[in-house]
Structure formats: structure tokens, C-alpha cells
Amino acid sequence: MKEKWPDLSGKRKNRAGKWAVRIILCVFAAIMVLPLLMLCADSLMGRRELIETCGAVLAGQGERAGFRLFPNYPTLRAYVRLLLDSPEYFTAFWNAMLQTVGVLAGQLLAAVPAAWAFAQFRFPGKKMLWFLYMLLMILPFQVTMVSGYLVLSGAHLLDTHWAVILPGIFSTLPVFILQKTFAGLPKEVLEAARLDGAGNVRIFLDIGIPLGMPGIFSILILGFLEYWNAIEQPMTYLKTEALWPLSLYLPRMIQAEMASAFAASIVTLLPAVLLFFAGQENLEQGIVASGMGRAVKSKNREDW
């Protein structure tokens, strides 16, 4: 009998394909990381070196912009000036933090109970109300900008922090994510709690919230990333510069002090980056939470 030799050509093709995919992914990753590296390098440059590299774009000086991954004369002067001699930056930082935290706190109070009601209760008009939620979720801000402006103007909330906070509290995206999370909870656990005499409020507080924490963390992370970098809402509803968040203050810094603007961009980026890496696992769990619930259901059916 003839011995069968292993198919080495197939293994070589698989390895070559894997290496090709890795190389392509590394190239795309480098392209995405390159702007951040440029930002870090520019924040360590002096004014003269910045004009030599970015003057054509930022200051209208020169014919062509350059690129330097490492500054020739690195300095921390921009960071020192930003952190020790820029009270306007700290005011904008506080405004951004106040508006973002206010939106997230309101979403916890409004979106979590609403998502639980959509996932666990039956009531008249539920499908129509859910359809309206989905319709509002896909509408861009430009569509609802005029109506929102008129409502806030009638309530005398324009040019206040509440003009940015209140519309964000009633955003529909957190309800959509949490509804999928709560709908995927094992029905057996909820039924067992009801048989033990637990009411709806106790089930929500003792079972729904603990099991739905991945989804809650995911909406907090996504909400922070969205409203920390929001531009259109503050630009539309805030006219007083003392109320502007960082997203509106940074473009003005570029005109006044280029080096400090790059340093401010790095400092502004840090809270969002740290929060993302700290809650990355919870964010992934929250996104796939509904799939986990379906997997539990299918496994229980197989066991029966």
C-alpha cells in the first residue's frame, strides 16, 4: 500500500494567507495610529518648528506641510503653559465634564428603567412606542435641531448647560442597547424570583441591574465618548463662550497658540482613552449580551 504523505502545500498556503492578513491588518493599524503619533510629536515642538512643519496648514505660512515623527528640539513648554497658565482651558474642561457627567447620570435614571419596561413588560402601544424610539434613533441631529431649539427656547433653557444635558438624557440609543441586554436575561431566574415572592421592583434592583451591568457599562462608555467630543449640540445651543466645552474651545486655541493647542488635544484625549481601555471588556460584554441570552435559551432547549 502506498503511504499518504501530508499535504504540505495546503499548510503553506494557509500560513501564507494568515501572514498576508496580519500584514494587511498591521498596515491599516499603522495608518490609524499615525495621526495620533503626529499629534504627540507636534505637542513636543516649539513654535518655530511647528511653523516649519505645519505652518502651511495652521498659520498660512509656507507652501507645503511637513511631517516629523520625532521633533528636532523636544520641549514640554506647551504642557507647562497649558497646565499652569491657561485658566480658560480648565473652564472648558470643567464645562465638558459637567455636561458629559450630567448626561450620563440622567441616562442611568431614564434609560435603564425604560429599557427594563420594554424588555420585560407588556402594555398597550408597546410596539408603536418602540417603533418611535427606533425612528428617533436613526434621525440625525440636523433633522431635530430646529424643533429642539424651539422647545429649549420656550423653556428658557438656551445658553445653559441644561440645553446640552436634557436632550442627551433622553437619547434612544442607550434604551436600544439595554433593551437587548435585559431581554437576553434567563427567564428561569426571573420566574424563580417571582415564585419566591419578589415584586417587579425588587427583581429589577436585585436581578436586572446586577445581571445587566455589562450593558450599563457599555452605554456609559459609549455615552462618554459621544458627549465628551460633541460639537453640534453645544455649537447650536450655547452662545456664551464661558459655557463652551473643550470641543468648541480647542479650535480657538489653534489660532492663538499652536503648541498649546496640540498639548491640549493630548490632555483632552486622555480621559476618553483611559476610560475605553479600563472598560473595554465590559463594553464587549454589553454589545454581545443579547447573543449570550439566546445561547442560554438554545442550550436549555437542547437539554430538555
Rank of each mutant, 00 (worst) to 15 (best):
M1K: 02
P6R: 13
D7T: 14
L8T: 15
G17V: 00
I23G: 15
L25W: 07
C26W: 15
C26R: 10
V27D: 08
M32D: 00
V33L: 13
M38E: 12
M38C: 14
L50C: 04
I51V: 05
E52P: 09
A56T: 02
Q61V: 15
G62H: 07
L84H: 14
L84I: 03
E88H: 13
E88D: 10
A96D: 06
Q99H: 04
V101S: 00
A105Q: 04
A110C: 15
A111M: 06
A117N: 07
F121G: 09
R122S: 13
M128D: 10
L136G: 12
V151C: 03
V151G: 02
L152I: 03
A155F: 11
L157D: 03
W162F: 10
I169A: 02
L173Y: 08
P174V: 03
L178K: 01
E191K: 06
A192R: 07
G197W: 03
G197L: 07
A198C: 08
V201G: 13
I207H: 10
I209G: 10
P210V: 08
P210H: 08
L211K: 01
P214G: 04
I219T: 04
L222N: 13
G223L: 00
F224D: 03
Y227D: 01
A230G: 01
I231T: 07
Y237F: 15
L238F: 14
K239C: 09
W244E: 01
P245V: 03
S247I: 14
P251C: 09
P251A: 08
A261G: 02
F262K: 05
A263Y: 05
V267Y: 05
T268F: 12
L270E: 01
Q285I: 12
A295S: 14
K297L: 12
S298E: 11
K299W: 11
W304L: 15
